[in-house]
Write a protein that binds this DNA or RNA. Sequence first.
DNA 1: ATTCGGTACTGGTATATACCAGTACTGGCA
DNA 2: TGCCAGTACTGGTATATACCAGTACCGAAT
Lengths: 246, 246
Amino acid sequence: MPRTRSQAAPSLPRFRQIVDSISHDIVSGVLPEHAALPSERVVADLHGVSRMTARRALEAIEAEGLAYSEDRKGRFVSPKRVRYDISNQVSFAARAGSTGADLAILLLRKHTTQADAKLAAALAVSVGETLHEYTRLFSIDSHTTLIETEFVVARRCPGLLNYDLRQSTTLLLEKHYGILARTGDVVIRMRAILPDEAALLGLPPHHAGIELEQTIRDEAGVPFCFGRQVWRGELAEFSAQAIVNR
Amino acid sequence: MPRTRSQAAPSLPRFRQIVDSISHDIVSGVLPEHAALPSERVVADLHGVSRMTARRALEAIEAEGLAYSEDRKGRFVSPKRVRYDISNQVSFAARAGSTGADLAILLLRKHTTQADAKLAAALAVSVGETLHEYTRLFSIDSHTTLIETEFVVARRCPGLLNYDLRQSTTLLLEKHYGILARTGDVVIRMRAILPDEAALLGLPPHHAGIELEQTIRDEAGVPFCFGRQVWRGELAEFSAQAIVNR
DNA sequence: ATTCGGTACTGGTATATACCAGTACTGGCA
DNA sequence: TGCCAGTACTGGTATATACCAGTACCGAAT
């Protein structure tokens, strides 16, 4: 009988056992939100495995969304997920202020540009149409959570970029230009966080995240805004109300 | 000439360069859908790195959704994403048949059970209420794509489990019990694929995927079905029509 | 023709080691 | 007081190696 793995542990890999052990501490609350997980070297010593194996375990916990890492600082327990209601997209920034969630918006870039083929199609304008483009970084409870880039048809809101963009632009468009968001087409997909996005979100690259694209239309059904959000996938969930059209 | 990182590549990690190289072959179409990627050992030789480094690169490509792996068979180029319209949830199985997409449904489990607290809340019934439960595996174009478990209030559809469940149960409920799906509450989140789910989906464990939970209500707004789907995240995207209620 | 076993592949797990590059703190010097 | 160097941490990258466990295929024996 070679290599008796014996009775107790029939096969479960070592690193899996470590994952289970630490996961248990997280879900049971022994390790509260944002608490530091033991480091790779500590886990290795504690469980008598090599650092690479400890690392595999910690990476798995990360991949499962139970923890996040900060480069060369450590790994920490993920906070509860934020729920983003895509049926109520408009008021995301607006509502956050009222619900007491600590939302901070950082403006990364703003400029006017011209619609390429994809944007032109989404916004039902000609290629080359002038658009306002701005990219913002959203932090919830002082944790960077998503990057959003929006493209707005400039013709309908001249001077938009002169306003303070660290607020709900939907409200801005309503207040100053009388444009009311009425319907939206939303697409959600899982994809990898690109290196530059990862840097902004404070993540190691090659991690999976959520991409959310939305086209926002006014009361006449005319699209005026196309946005793309990249979320840290473990920090959010998305809810929608579906009405079956038969 | 020893290990010249030289001018061109100032710092970009080796495995990152390999990722870029292979990614390029995928997006440019040199490697078509479902084509086999070079194996870990081949990549290692080709790029003159150790197998572990080659592995890191291939895992990164996988994490980015460009490829999927099959245990001990190899890694393969991911096919185009399937779009799942959550506003049209009902007809998923029904529509697939008509759109020519090759959809296969495998029944994994079926039994009647009792509502726990969470299910009772979702379905607006008492704890202990009898429910029909069944789990099905969906394959699209002969690739396992999602696992779905649904809970249906048994009182409203006695004998449901006796029908062939390898079809749209929404249509089944409509035809035999007169229950019409009218609205649904949907939640989408990214989370890790659990080991047993991974086995069913033919994936290595600890990978991120998409969980979609939905409560389906009839014309009176009464919930009758709660479902949970676990998707291979790189194979799907989810679309919704949002109507802003102000 | 079918079965069975070998073999050459695949990825999965695991060790031990090394160095790099940031972070966070501490203690001393100006 | 304020800066700065040192140090002890953290994770990130990378090598070399070993063995395990499935898969796929081919060829020989039945």
